[in-house]
């Protein structure tokens, strides 16, 4: 039997996916703007950040409404709760993309390091990839794909370590690079946080499928 609830849930689900795609594009654009020193693109990202926030509020209101009006249980409840929780993770990821856009504007004109920027470009690609895969895992309701996000996150952490070492070396060798170096490490931290939020989204996908609340990163350390 098709219920009215199912139609509303589809609408909520589509809204979440659209927001995910929007965040994914924003992260991609923020990374590209930083690498290409594109201040205009960065300005645009900052100007459009409210779109992500507005969608978060819409999806949250809709989720509260569905809980109040339909009193869902079991998988119905888990679907609504997954969106309600994961939507905050998407919004926070969007905030970090905006931080990167700010850094793009602030780093302009400073002494820069092409080696570090090339490593940041690699980190940016990996981060864009983890966002895409998290959204895809949600669309497919794919628990295994959600669990696999941790592997990309590990690669990112490894690149980040190398990058930070490079940043310190360069800053030590040439004090003119220090201001840029601070921005580089801040952008790397933003990228890592975005990836962390995607791990959270993955955890909510596991909850949706199993009813278990898990810590994917901790589970991997225990293996």
């Amino acid at each position: 039997m098709r219920r009215l609830f199912d139609d509303e849930l589809d609408e909520l689900d589509n809204g979440f996916t659209e927001m995910g795609v929007l965040v994914s594009h924003t992260v991609q654009k923020a990374v590209a703007a930083f690498i290409n020193h594109d201040r205009e693109a960065a300005q645009q990202i900052i100007a459009e950040d409210h779109q992500i926030n507005d969608r978060e509020i819409d999806l949250e209101s809709k989720s509260f409404e569905m809980i109040a009006l339909y009193q869902p249980v079991t998988t119905d409840l888990r679907e609504v709760v997954t969106i309600l929780k994961a939507v905050s993770d998407l919004e926070r990821a969007g905030d970090h993309a905006r931080n990167i856009a700010h850094a793009t504007i602030e780093v302009k004109g400073q002494h820069r390091s092409p080696e570090v920027e090339s490593q940041l470009a690699t980190m940016g690609e990996q981060t864009t990839e983890i966002v895409k895969q998290a959204i895809q895992a949600y669309v497919n309701k794919d628990e295994q794909a959600a669990r696999d996000l941790v592997a990309i996150n590990n690669q990112l952490a490894a690149i980040n370590e190398r990058l930070l070492r490079e940043v310190y070396n360069q800053a030590q060798a040439d004090s003119n690079v220090i201001l840029a170096a601070m921005k580089y490490s801040a952008v790397a931290a933003d990228l890592l946080r975005i990836a962390d939020y995607m791990i959270n989204v993955g955890e909510w996908i596991v909850y949706l499928k199993t009813g278990q609340i898990v810590e994917l990163k901790l589970m991997q350390n225990n293996d």
Partner: peptide, 19 residues
């Protein structure tokens, strides 16, 4: 029963999917 029932029939009934 209300969070994670073992049987699909239970879930269908308490989620109002019957009929």
């Amino acid at each position: 029963i209300f969070m994670n029932p073992a049987k699909k029939a239970t879930e269908d009934y308490i989620s109002g999917r019957f009929g």
